[in-house]
Design a protein around this nucleic acid. Structure first.
Lengths: 190, 190
DNA sequence: GTCTATAGCCCGATAGAC
DNA sequence: GTCTATCGGGCTATAGAC
């Protein structure tokens, strides 16, 4: 079954937002990538912001599902966190949701920002809960602030992408992840 | 003394690149912000990429100077690192250099990417050296990988900006910074 | 050095046929 | 639902006067 025009438009917009952001994505480019005609696009969507919102929502949904799945596995808290950090990623491509934080037109609009905000909230809550479980199990130091460490880990991922892109190499991302995991593991020593 | 047209053009471009990135910044907007005429712009610069390069170089120079200054102060390694992380920042505005990593047109061009790459190299080296000094002084665990921790700290800063923008609040940045500092301090315990 | 005028193109969106 | 034609405007850049 060939995906329908509406679906192809969302997927094409999603890819372009990921690569080039909102200002860098034109309806013409979306049509070209989706293989859909102009009339079709304005039939299914009111315009560029409407299409961008649908694409964002799909990216957010996919990302949130990956997060929930990654933290639902069996294992210690450390294993689940390191499993999420080490899961397969196209590091130089970066994060389809995190990319949008660089776009002022998206950040300035409550509706367009909502999927980004919600996705980071889901990530934060999964990290925080897992860290709390690790503290309860004696894996981590019991004086850890779970909200702080959750934010630290989320920041390492997003910032790791930035370092990797600046270097055009995956190594800085991998180093940043190994570094935070080594600090987290060491916190249990006393 | 009124700054000359060339200087005002660079500063206007620098601000716009910071706020809106390369694709989001038009020569027209640069003229409007700089209060300079069109003929003047094309007299001083070959075009948009040339002007962007000059603006990037100024941002990189300012950032590198701030980094060098912040790590040149007296104090323990931990104090210098926490001093750099806690220095005054306009968190929601983000990093004038790190912002550029989101721009594919800049990342794809070796010349335009160079100032970004070099600035992160300077930050990494200052962090790495300071961490090594802290390990030598017994402040930090002696099994820390200094390159990894340096990348982790740099990533926390850049990623912290992304989290803050997604939430339109400074709190996630501050939490991420406090978290990584608490892990770093705890590493000395054994 | 700085000005105004203009080129040629692509932008986001609409109209109306089929 | 999808097509083609077209709009008004902003884009990056050049021309040529002063």
């Amino acid at each position: 079954m060939k995906p329908d025009a509406r679906d192809r438009l969302i997927e094409g917009t999603r890819e372009l937002l990921w690569e080039r952001g909102y200002v860098g994505t034109s309806p013409t480019a979306i049509l070209s990538r989706s293989g859909v005609g102009q009339g079709s696009m304005y039939h299914h969507f009111a315009g560029k912001p409407d299409l961008a919102l649908a694409a964002e929502q799909r990216s957010a949904e996919l990302m949130q599902q990956q997060i929930v799945d990654a933290f639902a596995v069996k294992g210690t808290a450390f294993e689940r966190i390191s499993g999420y950090l080490g899961r397969e990623r196209d590091v130089l491509r970066g994060c389809s949701v995190g990319r949008l934080t660089a776009d002022p037109d998206i950040m300035a609009d409550e509706k367009l920002r909502a999927p980004v905000r919600e996705t980071f909230e889901v990530l934060h809550e999964n990290l925080r809960r897992t860290i709390a479980e690790g503290v309860a199990a004696g894996e981590f130091a019991d004086d850890l602030d779970t909200d702080e460490i959750a934010s630290t880990i989320a920041a390492v991922i997003q910032g790791g992408y930035a370092l990797a892109r600046a270097a055009q190499a995956v190594a800085p991302f991998d180093r940043a992840v190994r570094g935070v995991l080594s600090l987290l593991r060491a916190s249990a020593r006393p």
